[in-house]
Each structure stands twice: as structure tokens, then as C-alpha cells.
Nucleic acid binder design. Structure first.
Length: 413
RNA sequence: GCGAUCGUAGCUCAGUUGGUUAGAGCGCCGGUUUGUGGUACCGGAGGUCGGGGGUUCGAGACCCCUCGAUCGCCCCA
């Protein structure tokens, strides 16, 4: 016998099975239900795009683009990339398909995304998100509706101990002024910052605000606040969002340090984060954000489109699935036991009738005939239909509670 | 990319300062018992101890390399 070495799974991919797969499905099914309540339209998107869709939309200097993309050349020599997020692809579709005609357009989707990262708890190279976007809507009402949907989704998933952290990054001018002030402020104490933050000062100064390093934390408190740089319009926008959330009954907390990693965000930025010390926080390990997003009014232009305001969010299905509790696989309504192989054909027909009537069920017809009934009992099935031979005649016995017994007997005749 | 911990049957794990033919439970397969029944007992299959090299009379245990997993940093959902 030659020994063939079994190829192993790619690092950071998952084979989701059993209760974990049930929890995953529960998240997706709940999302599908809730998104219909809010009248978001379903879209199916390609898993890969031209590389420039992401590099232009997300920003060349971001980690996602500069070191986490799965890019490759196709046979025509074109650089393609497995999507690291949904938003860029959806924006591309909005432009190339003329979806402007449907604006404001509310869409929802879900599926796999790919990022070349070191796997750890709640982080994978192929991971899955649910995603919701409102395209072509510049009014704060859109932000409110989107957040209300996220809030309801988490409630319907039964997730508790999670709070909406909300911030504004202002419009383009506000954001730039704030950014410049932060650079001034942190540059003055540059030498006392962590190595990482000294680097952030060059690449992404906003990120220093949510550094975990104590050397940085002591300066963060007194750092310039976005509020001081907001234009009147930007302030009015944020006020409209927060009062809308209050009206919708969505609880939120102002998070002045909350920024987003990607370049395209403007105005509203938000994350749903487990409260410290909660069961949810413990279940997630160091990955705290379960749902995040914001407004990205500048994105369409970076893809060559007309200025188009939009808001969206995405949530990691794996992370949500870790918070929804045990979702064990359902027990069978009925199991048909073939206690004598002579009854096989009859058993198959019997099972067919049960399933046609909407009962879930399966066959137990392997292994020692004497142990098959025990196997069925052990499976926990609500009803057991056992077929055996008695004096050369087929004998059917049903073990179930009275109601099921009567129902099944009526079905089988 | 960096760091820490860990890789022994299908699964969960034992395996004493390195010492004969590597074990248990569960699961699986078969048999006996029971006989309208989730019982008990017996037996069986299944491991080049992640892989490679080294130290040693002798390595699952020690050293090096490598692969993988887990958790954390960075970043992010």
C-alpha cells in the first residue's frame, strides 16, 4: 500500500460542523429575517474583483491593502483579489450597473471574505460577514435606520451585554483639521509614545486614540477632540443621528476615541462592543468588535464615480455565532429501524411517507440487527418505527407518545 | 511580521528523575445477556507518540530544525 499524505486545510480556514454550524446558520437566518423587516434588498456579489477595486477604495496605505490581500494573476495577466470586505465591491457594482436609478438603495448580503492574517480567536483568513449598506442616501435618517436594524438584529440573536459605541469623524474638512491637530499634539511627546504609535503618527495618527499601550493611554485623554473641529453642518448631522437613535430606542454611548481603520469613512463611525466583564466579552477573547461600520461619502469618487453618500456596516458571523449560545442539532421526528434486512424496501417506503408529510427522519439499517433499536433509542428521536419479521410476516411497532403514535399510524395506514 | 503555550488511537486525555511488546474512557465493529427493549459483560479493529535530524546502551519524554494548532501583539469583523 502506498502512503498518500492527506493534504491539510489552509491555515486560517475552518470546517464548521455540528452545533457550531447550527449557530452559524442561526445567525444568517436571523439576519435574513431582520433585513426583510427593514426592506433591505438581497444582493449576491462576486467573491473576487480587480485588485484596484480594493486598493483604490480602501486605501493603498492601509494594512488590509498593503499586506493582507489574497491577490493573484489570472490567465490573462490581470491582477485579481479575493474580497477582503464587501463595501468596495458593492460600490463598484453600484457604479458599473447604474444602480443610481434605485437610489436610495438598501442592500444586504453575506458570505466569505479573505484576509491574510495570523489566525486567533474569532479571526480567520477566510471568515464570514453579514453586511448592510444604504447607497445614495446622504441624510442622517439613513444612519439611524441602519443602526436600528443592527440593534434589532443583535436583540433577536439574543446577544446581551453589547453597547453601540458611536462617534463622528466629521466631514472631510473637519476630519483633516482634527487629524492635523492630533499630529501636532502627539508629535510634541513623540519620544514617550510606544514604538507602534510613533509609526502610527506617520501612517494613521487617528489610530493612536485606541491604542492599548499604557504609554500612549496617558496622553490620549487630553488629546484634541473632534468636537472642537466639527463644522456646523457636521455637528448638525451628528446631532440628527443621535436624536434619531434616541427616538428609535437604540441605546448608544459616545466614544470620542473611536475611529475606523479604512480611509473612506466620514461622519458617523460606530462599533458594537461587548461591555467589559460581560459574558460576551469573555467569549470573544481579544476580538472586541462584533459589528462595525460608518458613513463613507468619499468612496464612490475614489472609484471614479460621482460623489455619492452612503452608509453601511458589517458583522463577523463567527463572532456573532460565539455569542448566540448552544445551538444543538435538532433531534429526528422519527427514526425507522430495520430490525431484519428483509424489511428494507418497506422501511424505505415508510420513511418516504414520513418525510413527505414533513417529518424529519432517518433510517437505522446498519450494524448488528439486534443493536439497531438501541441505536435509535439513543439518538433521542421523538418516534421510532421498528420493522421486523414475526412468523415470516412483517411486524411494525411504533414507539412514541400517544399523539405522535396516532399521527404516524394515520400516515402509514 | 513578532511573541507565548502546545502537538500520544476517530474524540478527550494518562504515560512517574529517559528503561522491556505505548494505556484508559468515550465512539466504532462483533458476540453474549436482556427481550418491547436507552442494561450489563466479553472480544476486536485502530497509533511509524505531527515530521526530520541529534544526544544516549536505550527517546513519547532531552536538544535543534520544520510543519501545524491555540492564544496574544499589530491590524481588524
Amino acid at each position: 500500500m502506498s502512503k498518500i499524505k492527506t493534504p491539510q486545510a489552509i491555515r486560517g480556514t475552518q470546517d464548521i460542523f455540528g452545533p457550531d454550524a447550527e449557530a452559524f446558520a442561526f445567525v444568517v437566518e436571523t439576519f435574513e429575517r431582520v433585513r426583510k423587516l427593514y426592506r433591505f434588498r438581497r444582493v449576491e456579489m462576486p467573491v473576487f474583483e480587480k485588485t484596484e477595486v480594493f486598493s483604490r477604495a480602501i486605501g493603498e496605505t492601509t494594512d488590509v491593502v498593503s499586506k493582507e490581500m489574497y491577490s493573484f494573476e489570472d490567465r490573462g495577466g490581470e491582477s485579481l483579489t479575493l474580497r477582503p470586505e464587501f463595501t468596495a465591491g458593492i460600490a463598484r457594482a453600484f457604479l458599473t450597473n447604474g444602480w443610481q436609478q434605485h437610489a436610495p438603495l438598501k442592500v444586504a448580503t453575506h458570505g466569505p471574505l479573505f484576509r491574510y492574517e495570523r489566525p486567533q480567536k474569532g479571526r480567520y483568513r477566510q471568515f464570514h460577514q453579514i453586511d448592510a449598506e444604504i447607497l445614495g442616501a446622504g441624510e442622517p435618517q439613513a444612519d439611524v435606520e441602519l443602526l436600528a436594524m443592527a440593534d434589532q438584529l443583535l436583540k433577536e440573536l439574543g446577544i446581551e451585554g453589547v453597547t453601540l459605541h458611536l462617534n463622528t469623524l466629521g466631514d472631510g474638512d473637519s476630519r483633516e483639521a482634527w487629524r492635523a491637530a492630533l499630529i501636532d499634539y502627539f508629535s510634541a511627546v513623540r519620544g514617550e509614545l510606544s514604538e507602534d504609535s510613533q509609526e502610527r503618527l506617520e501612517k494613521n495618527p487617528l489610530r493612536i486614540l485606541d491604542s492599548k499601550d499604557p504609554r500612549d493611554r496617558k496622553f490620549v485623554g487630553d488629546a484634541p477632540k473632534i468636537d472642537a473641529f466639527l463644522s456646523d453642518d457636521a455637528r448638525a448631522f451628528f446631532d440628527a443621528v443621535t436624536s434619531g437613535l434616541d427616538a428609535a430606542g437604540v441605546k448608544w454611548a459616545r466614544a470620542e476615541g473611536l475611529v475606523r481603520g479604512l480611509d473612506y469613512y466620514r461622519h458617523t463611525a460606530f462599533e458594537f462592543i461587548p461591555d467589559e466583564g460581560s459574558a460576551a466579552a469573555a467569549a470573544l477573547g481579544s476580538q472586541s468588535t462584533i459589528l462595525g461600520g460608518g458613513r463613507y461619502d468619499g468612496l464612490m469618487e475614489s472609484l471614479g464615480g460621482a460623489p455619492t453618500p452612503a452608509v453601511g456596516w458589517a458583522a463577523g458571523i463567527e463572532r456573532l455565532a460565539m455569542l448566540v449560545g448552544d445551538k444543538s442539532e435538532a433531534l429526528a421526528d422519527a427514526v425507522v429501524v430495520v430490525e431484519d434486512d428483509a424489511c428494507m424496501a418497506s422501511a424505505i417506503a415508510t420513511l418516504g411517507k414520513l418525510r413527505a408529510a414533513g417529518l424529519t427522519g432517518e433510517l437505522v439499517a446498519s450494524g448488528s440487527p439486534r443493536k439497531r433499536f438501541d441505536k435509535a433509542v439513543k439518538s433521542g428521536a421523538k418516534a421510532i418505527v421498528a420493522l421486523s419479521l414475526r412468523d415470516g410476516e412483517e411486524n411494525r411497532r411504533i414507539k412514541a407518545d400517544e399523539a405522535d403514535q396516532a399521527r404516524i399510524e394515520a400516515l402509514l395506514g
